[in-house]
Design a protein around this nucleic acid. Structure first.
Lengths: 332, 332
DNA sequence: TACCGATGTGTAATCGTTACCAGAAGGATC
DNA sequence: GATCCTTCTGGTAACGATTACACATCGGTA
């Protein structure tokens, strides 16, 4: 393992001088600099981050805690955050917690021992006490997608309640009265909020959902089953709390011989790529996922450097994307 | 920042004893151990990995290089590798390179300075010379999904050529003769291999694809456009070199008023979750993605520890999943 | 009594890097 | 000729952990 000492020997100088060219700080003559640079190039030397951190430097490490990354929504989020952070000079530990607080705690311990400079987290619902040690050490935490109940220094959370309302309102505007709701995972904060929002909007029209189906896991197969249950209540429209849920529902409806949107309207939430590539194309509420990821990275950077000049963008708005799965109900 | 010295002071002992309980090595009396443990708990102390690495310990860090993670296939792969590695005691840097060798090189430099113990890579096509410094330092590299031309210590690559043949053969067996092929990204090795395999199978029946459409980026929108082009050649069947490509094609066909599989058969490759959740359900060749991820993790672990007792599982086989998008052609 | 092994504890070197300090050389200013 | 800055270079302490080594104590045994 080439070290700074190896380079110093090779260039017949001292470690101090090598360090100076590495960080170009202080004075180094052109001649010496050249000798040192050639030694570095020759050996493919890379200074040890560990030694630097140990010495008291910033770690440039950040922890990213997500429920999963094999779900499109989080995959996109992870990618956009990792990219933005890398461009800002950070390296990320992307960790998937499977919505388990125990998993999260293990990762938090790891973050601590790795001396991460900050954390971005979409935490599981069940308590956030395991974030306390991070707080205690003054490590900034940015919550994304889900709140962190007092443990976050900042949070990038869209208005899920509003999102829920928007879904319901769209169906209401079309004239639907018998509306079912389904989604997963049920313990997710955002899911709960969207549900609450949708119910509230229905409530304002004096309505209640004809069925609410929540599941544990967030995948097509689960959504399909939930939709079968929901459909038994003969709704004219269906709210998928996520696009995955909505797409599962499209399938269930199809298998039941229902025509969409003639016999059943369906609306989703997120606008993942698949939403535009199911048949019929899914009407949904778009949240600008990549944009959220970038903002989160930016905000964390700002917190880590405590440089108030770092730009703070506002959260982008939710928008209704009208495609082919919603229409007025057939008059009874 | 609590350090081992802080703990020693708190427990009125020396750093050596604290280290001994931390690693439970050597002798420590029950009484002292209790005092130390309580001090550790009190301060939420986590020993610095950096100091440990510096001292000569293993870093337990691994670099994962993937073209992207917002593509389902790689998202699933990333998640399965990260999980398996974490359970083996490693932490991962999941990096998305956007198929760019320059990006990869930047990440490799980072891996070097972070002293990763190993790397798993699905590299971009354009040369692999930037992996040389890793080799030079004896850092094991496991190639996944794509070969690494001499730089990998091991490689977990399914037989893409066979995959290509299987797709073609299935359509051939159904009686198709006018077959088009589409896929992306075109510089990807696996795409090229599958293409070659498909062409070879057609060749054995004295046929050539009626059209081959390759694109730069791997997304639905691109696939849709490619499919429009391919369909202009009036094939009776279409090979999507990935499921994404096939799903894009389903859409294009639908928009052209074609009925699947009556007017057009479509087969994909990968068996991502969406494949079972498009309408009609996509017939595809399944590669067991998570399984591959686990094997990669296992193999890397074996290389890092150079422990020959670590299990080596064989690569799982490709299987044809027959769903609803393929059928015999209408007799002319 | 003298000696031995097992047990328990502390000191100091070490890893790779940075930053502070000291010292040297050369030129300019008074 | 004394003093000062500027430029250049090297020596070394410190960061936090592990570990080889030294030393001390104790019970048992020859």
């Amino acid at each position: 393992m080439a070290s700074i000492k190896t380079i110093a020997t090779l260039a017949q100088t001292s470690v101090a001088s090598v360090s100076r060219v590495l960080n170009n700080s202080g004075y180094v003559s052109a001649a010496l600099r050249a000798k040192i640079e050639s030694a570095i190039a020759q050996t493919n030397f890379q200074p040890s981050s560990d030694a630097r951190i140990l010495r008291g430097g910033k770690s440039h490490l950040v922890g990213i805690l997500l429920p999963s990354i094999d779900v499109q929504f989080f995959g996109i989020l992870a990618q956009s955050m990792e990219q933005a952070l890398f461009d800002l000079g950070y390296q990320s530990f992307i960790c998937s917690t499977a919505e388990s607080a125990a998993h999260e705690a293990r990762y938090v311990a790891m973050f601590l021992s790795r001396r991460v400079g900050g954390v971005i987290a979409a935490s599981a619902e069940a308590g956030a006490a395991h974030f306390a040690p991070l707080r205690a050490r003054g490590i900034p935490i940015v919550a994304i997608d889900r709140d962190l109940h007092g443990y976050a220094s900042d949070s990038i959370v869209i208005d899920h309640d509003l999102g829920g309302r928007m879904m319901a309102q769209h169906l209401l505007d079309l004239g639907h009265r018998k509306i079912a709701i389904l989604g997963a995972p049920q313990h997710s904060q955002s899911i709960k909020r969207r549900l609450a929002g949708a119910k509230a909007a229905l409530g304002q029209s004096g309505l209640q959902p004809v069925s609410v189906q929540l599941g544990m896991t967030h995948d097509f197969a689960q959504a399909y089953d939930l939709a079968r249950n929901a459909l038994a209540h003969r709704p004219t429209a269906l709210i998928g709390l996520t696009d995955i849920a909505a797409i599962g529902a499209i399938h269930a409806a199809h298998d039941l011989g229902l025509q969409i949107p003639r016999d059943l309207s369906i609306i989703g939430f997120d606008d993942i790529p698949s939403a535009a590539f199911v048949l019929p194309r899914l009407t949904t509420i778009a949240q600008p996922i990549r944009h959220l990821g970038h903002i989160a990275a930016q905000r964390l950077h700002r917190l880590i450097t405590s440089d108030p000049s770092v730009q703070m963008n506002a959260l982008p708005a939710l928008t209704l994307i009208q495609r082919d799965t919603t229409a007025p109900p057939i008059p009874a």
